[in-house]
Structure formats: C-alpha cells, structure tokens
Amino acid sequence: TSEVNPQMLQDLQAAGFDEDMVIQALQKTNNRSIEAAIEFISKM
C-alpha cells in the first residue's frame, strides 16, 4: 500500500471521517490535499 500523510489522516479523522475511507482517499489522491481527499470521499 502507498503511504498516507499522517497529518492529513489525523486532520480528516478529527473532522469525523472514517479511518478506512480516509486512507483510501489519501492513497487515491496521492496525498495531494485534504480538499482532494474530501472530494474523493464525497464521491464514494
């Protein structure tokens, strides 16, 4: 599995997102940004 940015993971979990969804979103967006991860999650 590709690495996820631990700070982004922590921030998104703090915002109430599920850890598994956050990890998948960060991997799919290559840790580009929190906004990109949220957009990915919203389309899941």
Rank of each mutant, 00 (worst) to 15 (best):
E19R: 15
N5A: 00
I23C: 08
T1Q: 12
I34Y: 04
P6C: 07
K43W: 07
S33N: 02
M8W: 08
L12M: 10
Q7M: 08
M21N: 09
L26R: 03
F40V: 11
Q10V: 07
M8C: 01
M44A: 12
N31S: 14
I34S: 08
E3V: 01
Q10F: 07
I41C: 07
M8L: 08
I23L: 08
A15R: 14
E35K: 09
P6E: 15
E3M: 07
I23K: 14
I34L: 13
F40W: 15
Q10H: 14
L12A: 02
L26E: 06
P6L: 10
A37Y: 01
N31D: 03
V22S: 15
P6K: 15
D11F: 12
T1Y: 07
Q24S: 08
I34A: 12
P6Y: 10
L12W: 00
M8Y: 09
S2G: 14
Q27C: 06
K28H: 15
E19Q: 13
E19S: 12
R32L: 09
Q24N: 09
V22E: 05
Q7T: 11
A15P: 00
E3I: 03
T29W: 00
I41P: 07
Q27R: 12
D18C: 08
M44C: 12
V22C: 15
K28A: 15
G16R: 00
N30K: 13
A25E: 01
R32W: 03
E19Y: 07
S42P: 05
T29A: 02
N31Y: 07
L9C: 10
S2R: 12
F17Q: 05
Q7R: 10
E3G: 10
T29Q: 02
F17T: 02
A15C: 06
T29I: 02
Q7E: 12
L26S: 05
A25R: 01
Q27G: 06
S42T: 15
Q7F: 02
L12E: 03
D18M: 02
V22Y: 01
A25Y: 02
A36V: 04
I38T: 12
Q27H: 06
F17L: 05
L26P: 05
S42D: 14
G16E: 02
S2V: 06
N31T: 02
A25T: 01
Q13W: 00
D18F: 02
I34Q: 11
A14R: 11
M44L: 11
A37L: 01
V22K: 03
L12K: 01
A25P: 04
L9H: 05
F40P: 09
F17R: 01
K28M: 12
Q10W: 06
R32C: 13
A25N: 02
E19N: 07
M44Q: 15
D18Y: 00
V4P: 12
S2F: 11
R32A: 15
E3C: 00
Q24Y: 07
N5M: 00
Q7Y: 05
K43I: 04
D20E: 13
V22W: 01
D18S: 09
D18N: 08
Q27K: 15
A37V: 04
F40A: 13
F40C: 13
E39P: 03
K43N: 12
F40E: 15
D18W: 00
A25G: 04
M21F: 06
N5D: 13
D20A: 12
V4N: 08
K43Y: 08
S33F: 02
E35R: 06
A15V: 04
Q7C: 05
R32P: 04
I23E: 10
S42Y: 10
K43H: 15
Q13M: 14
T29D: 00
L12H: 02
L9A: 13
I38H: 08
K28T: 07
A15E: 06
I41Y: 04
P6N: 15
I38V: 13
A14D: 14
G16V: 00
P6V: 13
A37K: 00
I23W: 05
I23D: 06
A25W: 01
L12I: 05
I34P: 12
S2M: 10
N31K: 01
Q27P: 02
E19V: 09
A25L: 01
Q7P: 01
K43G: 12
L26G: 05
I41Q: 06
G16T: 01
F40N: 07
L26T: 01
I34G: 06
K43M: 11
E39W: 01
T29E: 03
A25I: 02
N5R: 01
P6S: 12
S42Q: 15
I38L: 11
E3A: 07
A25C: 03
A15K: 12
E3D: 11
